[in-house]
């Protein structure tokens, strides 16, 4: 991939002299790898159709899209929608809410996945390990609607078991579902409950690849459990952690629409409004398609910057990045 791009760039730079030769090279390469390319075809078509073709529609962020006039018939408005968004009084609040939720997910939910994987890895009884593993995967398969309904039952005023327990312990009468101070803890709690188990899969796979002889050697040298985890296990899966961290950072602004939308209400909206719910609100409910697209596009650009940024950081600290 990289060589191909470089080849094209080179051919663009000094066109006249290099082009014929390069063209032959490309043709030779194509001929040599034709069957591999053929195998790639379904993937390429998928990306063209479902990933690149829709980008054509992203231009409505720069137009005043009216469905009746179609994409091409709608008038151009330039950066107007972006300006409206960034100067919107809601913008700082949306950004703050999104970043706080993202940070909570990155610093609490993500490390917990690693801890959980390490704990599972330390289980020596195979049947126990398998059973626990399967059980912690289960919540992943429940939809957010179900998770939020369960939360609603557990925290129902007056008879929810968790509502009763927590209020008895704290000696308060808090309505957890409507109290803005409890919104973020609940979101993180749900996130951890639903996704931690599932997130361990990749780490467990990486852990399975660690050379067992290293442990045996360490035991002979007198290393305890903690020392083995710290000096052997964690360094072995370091690159996996970095790769997942980079990918996670790219998703940082995708706070998860469903969960937050379902958990928000009139009383906690000040902390619950994030970019995703805002896009739904103005795009789908209000029908300001262009404006919503502009917001979504701005969000995507921040996501790309974050991925490159983390990747650059990872490389700087002598780790392997993902590209």
């Amino acid at each position: 991939m990289a060589t191909l791009i470089e080849a094209q760039a080179a051919s663009g730079a000094s066109a006249a002299t290099l082009r014929p030769q390069n063209r032959r090279n490309v043709r030779e390469t194509l001929a040599r790898y034709r069957w591999l390319l053929f195998l790639m075809l379904p993937g390429i078509i998928y990306f063209l159709l479902f990933r690149f073709w829709p980008m054509y529609g992203a231009q409505i962020a720069f137009r005043d899209y009216i469905p009746f006039l179609g994409i091409e018939g709608s008038p151009w408005v330039g950066w107007e929608h972006f300006e409206t968004f960034f100067t919107n009084p809601d913008f700082p609040r949306l950004l703050r809410n999104t970043l706080i939720l993202a940070a909570l997910s990155l610093f609490i939910a993500f490390p917990l996945t690693i801890v959980m994987a390490l704990l599972l890895n330390e289980l020596r009884l195979n049947i126990l390990k398998r059973t626990v593993q399967t059980l912690v995967y289960v919540p992943h398969f429940l939809s957010w609607t179900v998770v939020v309904s369960l939360t609603g039952l557990l925290f129902a005023i007056g008879n929810g078991p968790l509502w009763t327990l927590l209020n008895d312990v704290m000696g308060t009468e808090t309505n957890f579902l409507a109290d803005p101070a409890w919104f973020r803890p609940l979101i993180v709690l749900q996130d951890v409950w639903k996704n931690t188990g599932w997130g361990t899969i990749i780490f467990l796979a990486a852990l399975a690849g660690v050379d067992q002889e290293q442990y045996e050697a360490a035991i002979i040298d007198g290393a305890g459990r903690w020392q083995r985890v710290w000096h052997i296990t964690l360094p072995s899966i370091r690159s996996t952690i970095i790769v997942l961290l980079i990918l996670q950072t790219g998703q940082i602004l995708n706070t998860g629409f469903e969960q937050i939308y379902l958990m928000s209400n009139a009383l906690n909206r000040t902390v619950a409004d994030v970019f995703d719910t805002y896009v739904y609100f103005v795009g789908i409910q209000q029908g300001s398609y262009s404006y919503a697209t502009a917001v979504g596009l701005a969000k995507a650009i921040v996501g790309v910057i974050l991925i490159f940024g983390t990747n650059w950081l990872a490389k700087r600290f002598n780790q392997q990045g993902i590209f």
């Binding site: 809601d90 009139a266 909206r269 609100f281 103005v282 409910q285 209000q286």
Partner: peptide, 20 residues
Amino acid sequence: MSSGTQLDTLISDARIQFIA
């Protein structure tokens, strides 16, 4: 038409917050 939903929600949320 372009920002009514947001404007209306501002008021209806504040109403509930005031009542609460």
